[in-house]
Amino acid sequence: MQNLKQILANILHYLWSGWGGVASLFLLLASWEYGHLKMGSLILPSPKESLLALHIALVNEQAFIDILITCKRAFFGFGAAAILASASGILAGISMTTSMALRPIITFTMGVPPIAWIILALMWFANDDMTAGFTVFVVIFPIIFASAMQGMRMRRATLNEMANIYQLSLWQKLIHLDLPQVISYLFPAWIVAMGMSWKIVVMAELLGTNNGIGAAMATARVNIDTAATMAWILVIIAMLLLIEYLFLEPIKRHIERWKPR
């Protein structure tokens, strides 16, 4: 009961702390409106026009299907990369030798621009889902991998010494000592990767697929429909905000509750 009360209080506190964010969002909307007044509807449609275009798009059920398809691709690409890259990065970070050996490979893969991966994926896979999902996977994998590895390398040796005195097993050290330290490195990487995965999926869809938000934007471009483009941008941003602040941020707060504020 006490715990439940505490959790409810925390949720309320968290929502209340959102006012600052809301204020800056409104400031952004105001400058958008100002830009529209200066440049006109063709270059930059007003927020109202964009919202109207969004409304029109969302009346059509195809829009929801597109959003779902994009979500699915980003989710699977991100999920697979987050799980595999975190696990393999942690394993690689245990040993100094593997970290040194893998560093140039990470630099190499991070150096390949996402657009190049999209072209390759388009040629390799006939399947739309695979093209977008694979591109997300290869682009964000090295970012998460490098963070996990770095997190493992930066563990405090002093704590390990203490655990050795009390004869903790390797597994116990991983759970109680290593993971809590690595998570501080992993979380920022996950958030960055999550943002990137959306951008990459939309880009891959725009270039090579027949459905999803990116394909819808390609149609808007052909029709020189700036308002529709802005509407789709709003959808992407809204999805990202929802995922980050309703999903990742509360988890992060819970995990890092021991950190003094």
Binding site: T158, L159, E161, M162, I165, Y166, H176, L177, P180, W258, K259
Partner: peptide, 15 residues
């Protein structure tokens, strides 16, 4: 055996 270090070496993420 037990060892008391110069610093306490407590885990900050555990109560």
């Amino acid at each position: 055996q037990a060892y008391l270090f110069q610093e306490t070496r407590l885990l900050p993420w555990k109560n």
